[in-house]
């Protein structure tokens, strides 16, 4: 494994001593050249997991190893500097992820300018190369982020992260704020870059349908817990956990005939708040198949079929 989290925990403290169990003992590794899709609804802790993994949040428990080396629980500026050439990230919000006062050139060149301390002018050729590699054009260099569409901005964010040629790229919901047609562009671009650069990727998203096109493996999170993990196609077409099944079934299919024949499978209610969780199955409250034991004991993630890990008592 290139990077491996073991029983990673991230709790946020609230007033009154209560705690938000944002990430609760999640173990997940990413091998070299592998793309892992991490899927969950809002409040599932998927973004917190990604940020805790690479040091943007302090860890509350557990450990993360990168190439076998233990990463610090709390990051300082020096730690980020050390890992800058190895791990990079692209962000969800294409509006907030680019400094509105900087030109596209300054934004993309930032990583090299920080690392090598070279003047910006010397970096121009390389920036143009990356700009064109993400499908933009050299005459965009002097423009400002607000002049671009969401998809174009997201591509600028990709160029900024990849210009330092990292080995691992964390994609934090890079497509959630985009139109479906633009999502496909970004997914395809990331897929191409991953293949040509031999990147490892953690691709965080809130639904599985798009992620399956880029992922080798997929992981599903619910309320801070990892509930299912397996090869992408296998997991998508044969989901085992009741939540994964409902999540996939909820997604509308662009096929009117199929939709007209749909048997409505709705999950009632919404994802509960992850404050002071008790030790039971996180999904028990909404699960149509829940039994008494689901409310008593938290199921462990275990291999139920070769390569398929599920946290459910019923399997």
């Amino acid at each position: 494994m290139l990077i491996e989290a073991t029983a990673l925990r991230k709790f946020f403290s609230l007033s009154g001593g209560r705690q938000v169990h944002a990430v609760d003992e999640v173990s997940l590794g990413i091998a070299e050249h592998e793309v892992v899709g991490l899927v969950g609804e809002s409040g599932s802790g998927k973004t917190t997991f990604g940020k805790t993994l690479i040091g943007l949040h302090d860890k509350s428990g557990g450990e993360v190893r990168y190439r076998g080396e233990l990463l610090p629980a709390r990051y300082g500026a020096a730690d980020f500097r050390k890992q800058a050439s190895e791990i990079q990230m692209i962000f969800q919000d294409p509006y907030g992820s680019l400094n509105p006062r900087m030109t596209i050139f300054e934004i993309i060149a930032e990583g090299l300018a920080i690392r090598e301390g070279r003047s910006l002018a010397a970096l121009r050729d390389k920036v143009v190369y990356w700009l064109e590699r993400v499908g933009l054009h050299a005459d965009h260099l002097s423009r400002y982020p607000h002049e671009f569409s969401g998809g174009q901005r997201q591509r600028v964010g990709i160029a900024r992260a990849l210009i330092v040629e990292p080995k691992l790229l964390i994609c934090d919901e890079p497509i959630s704020a985009l139109d479906v047609s633009v999502q496909a562009q970004v997914v395809q671009l990331l897929g191409e870059l991953q293949a040509s650069m031999g990147l490892s990727m953690l691709f965080i998203a809130h639904d599985l349908s798009m992620v399956r096109y880029v992922s080798n493996r997929m992981a599903v999170m619910y309320l801070g817990s990892l509930i299912e993990l397996g090869p992408a196609e296998d997991l998508y077409f044969r989901p085992l956990h009741p939540y994964t099944q409902l999540l996939i079934a909820s997604n509308p299919e662009p096929d009117p005939e199929h939709e007209r024949q749909r048997q409505d499978q709705l999950i009632s209610g919404e994802i509960p708040s992850p404050v002071d969780l008790k030790a039971h199955c996180r999904f028990a409250g909404r699960c149509p198949k829940a039994e008494a034991r689901c409310f008593e004991e938290r199921p462990a993630l275990r291999e139920v079929l070769p390569g398929r890990l599920v946290a459910c008592h019923l399997l």
Partner: peptide, 13 residues
């Protein structure tokens, strides 16, 4: 460009 539940659709255009 739409993702699909159809296993035959292996590539996004």
């Amino acid at each position: 460009a739409m993702p699909s539940n159809d296993p035959r659709k292996r590539q996004l255009q």
